[in-house]
């Protein structure tokens, strides 16, 4: 499975890691990973260190997660994007929408 989810004990820290290509084929898995996380003030970390490629639908999925998080007063952080993925985030100027931890 390319979408790996880890949840802290208090359920407030959700880490979603993407292994390999992050594209439309992961749509359902990615959504499943967060859709039932409804704790207030949760922190969603999308770990992209093992992501080799990301397309625009992946950017869209991240925005959906951001909407979801904000509905529950939560936050989304993108963590350690690989060089090629960071380039895509940069072109989309995502650092102006959410936090990217390099």
């Amino acid at each position: 499975m390319n979408v790996i989810k880890q949840v802290s004990e208090d359920k407030k820290n959700i880490e979603i890691s993407i292994d390999g290509r992050f594209d439309f084929s992961l749509h359902q898995h990615f959504r499943d990973a967060y859709i039932n996380c409804k704790e207030k003030n949760s922190m969603f970390t999308i770990c992209l260190s093992k992501t080799t490629y990301m397309d625009s639908s992946a950017l869209g999925m991240i925005l959906l997660l951001k909407d979801h998080a904000e509905n529950y007063s939560g936050k989304v952080v993108i963590s350690k994007p690989s060089e090629s993925v960071n380039k895509i985030l940069e072109i989309a100027q995502f650092h102006r929408l959410l936090t990217i931890e390099l």
Partner: peptide, 11 residues
């Protein structure tokens, strides 16, 4: 000219 703004329709 590099991208200076998130895509249109995001914000």
């Amino acid at each position: 000219i590099s991208s200076s703004h998130p895509p249109i329709g995001v914000l």
